[in-house]
Write a protein that binds this DNA or RNA. Structure first.
Lengths: 338, 338
DNA sequence: CTGTTAGCGCCTTCAG
DNA sequence: CTGAAGGCGCTAACAG
């Protein structure tokens, strides 16, 4: 059954259904698409439906979009920059569900940095959501039938503005405020060692600086933390760097769960622990953060709400309406590392 | 040059390119596709290429597949059963790259269990790789133009046989042997609490039983471990259950990294630690496993090799050749929890 | 209300 | 070696 090869017969077409039901192709099209403004007598309708079922008819996606001049595929252009996390997976799942609700089909394609074998040769999406797209790629897409392009790094993109202005700022603000409320006034930023995250890290740092300034705090001390490779040694060095400052850093904002875990590992190297010797607050959430020693206090991002906003943005763009204002999506999850 | 022949609103078509270059549509098709058996004079070729570039021409994916009668999209039907992990993300990335090498375009779609809004209405893939597909869905796909369907839960599927026969068995065998070589003869299995993993867990348990039997060991004692939710309490109970047995379980095979992390958390509740009080070996790998206390000894699965095998399987099926034998993909990563 | 007729953009014989 | 013509499966005007 599974694992076999092609069957020999041709797949049924709408013409086959029409013949089988003894009607014309347009009638078939009308009943199968529920076209309104057309009143089809019930018996005819039934005959068509039955014929379609009998023939196991499924319309050809290509022919449909070719003829309609517009597909209903939304491409999620997955960046090589971001390692896959449970959060990301959830986002994609929510996006698929919410787009389906809107009559669109979400599909992801990991972009491997080699321009070779472009997805767009194989699929013509009606909209694209991408992390980092060169400007000429954006115009090329637009030029080639993509009606809505959202680039999360383009300054002028309203969704990008939300990501950086609301989401990232929300994370930074909540991290700083939580630490502040625990009495920490000299803060650090644990930036991911992973080079792929350099750009995202830069943005976070900017947001953290702003958040600190807003509360009259000095800029956070940024230090790279190894999230990869074996050695906890560099993590220990990072912790030492913070603690040796005068005045010493007593609270750290971590870029993500892995960075937070690394800070904990670095503390352990010195025989120290959070929050007594250094408070740590992470971002994003994951099973590993829950199971850490101590369980990590995190700023979580609501992926369902995020997905809803992205879908709203895309549909608005497609309808020629302005992109709605973005919601707040961040929230502190209290655990024991602050 | 030849005077803005392409109407501005519409995207350029191959006819526009032909007009712009002063040749016929077929000539355009020939040079753009490098059709062999057709000798095109170099100057003509150049003119066509330049015209295409000038017009920013990109062929219409739909028209192409419609006309060729076969698309080059491979659909990765992502199961709602499996939470997204770094490993899975890597696999998808590798698959995309390897499929591209083979001239195919991999695309994922999270399957939301609601049959509504089927992807196949929007895309006609030439092949599908899915986790769990009802038999009738498989035949329906086959019937509707999908030339190769791989269902990872269908008994008769050669790839499924590899997954369970080689990959899962490899994980189980290496876990058992590693524990055995450290002197543990009474083993436990930490099964994930997450209900979505129930089926996968059942298969793993079966493989573990076989591996134990092969070494004359009693069957492993399976206990659920909470990977979700706050409380480490149930994890502590699980650990207690193992230790109170007579003879006591002294080594545990964890289903994945999260389950392994949970066992560590359970140990901590009792003031105990791995490996002294209970040895733990996980499966899969992740940053969190590296950063655990102690760093987790794991059986890792080589995702690149896995991806290559899947691609080979699909291309073989498409060419009507038998699926090649699957490679070994498992390996022990030594750290400090055994 | 139903059937006929044109395309959608491309590929692929087949003549020239 | 190039151009003309037919068809892939479907939708959407337009007749009947």
């Amino acid at each position: 059954m599974a694992g076999g090869t092609a069957r020999s017969g041709r797949r049924a077409t709408s013409a086959d259904v029409a013949r089988e039901a003894g009607v014309s192709r347009s009638t078939v099209s009308f009943v199968l698409n529920g076209t309104k403004g057309q009143t089809i007598p019930e018996p005819t309708r039934q005959r068509v439906l039955e014929a379609a079922a009998r023939l196991r008819y499924a319309p050809s996606a290509e022919a449909r979009t070719l003829s309609r001049g517009r597909s209903d595929v939304v491409l999620l252009y997955q960046p090589p920059q971001l390692p896959m996390t449970a959060d990301m997976g959830a986002l994609v799942e929510f996006l698929a569900a919410e787009f389906a609700e809107a009559g669109l089909t979400a599909v992801t394609h990991p972009w491997s940095r080699k321009p070779d074998g472009d997805v767009l040769t194989a699929i013509t999406p009606v909209a694209v959501i991408a992390w980092d797209l060169p400007d000429d790629a954006v115009t090329a897409m637009r030029h080639n039938g993509v009606r809505a392009v959202i680039s999360l790094t383009a300054e002028s993109d309203p969704v990008a503005q939300w990501i950086w202005g609301t989401r990232e700022n929300g994370i930074a603000r909540l991290q700083v405020e939580r630490l502040l409320s625990a009495g920490h006034r000299r803060l650090g930023y644990a930036r991911p060692h992973d080079a792929r995250l350099a750009e995202a890290s830069e943005m976070r740092l900017k947001a953290l600086r702003q958040a600190c300034a807003a509360h009259g705090l000095p800029a956070p001390v940024a230090v790279s933390i190894p999230g990869d490779g074996e050695g906890a040694r560099p993590a220990a060095d990072a912790v030492a760097a913070w603690r040796e400052l005068v005045p010493a850093v007593t609270g750290v904002c971590a870029h993500d769960d892995v960075a937070a875990l690394s800070v904990l590992a670095g503390l352990r190297e010195h025989g120290l622990a959070a929050p007594a010797d250094l408070a740590v607050i992470g971002a994003g959430d994951s099973p590993a953060a829950r199971l850490a020693v101590p369980p990590l206090t995190m700023v979580a991002v609501d992926m369902l709400v995020t997905a809803r906003h992205l879908v709203a943005a895309v549909t608005s763009l497609l309808d020629g309406r302005p992109v709605p204002a973005g919601p707040e999506v961040t929230q502190v999850i209290e655990r024991h590392s602050v």
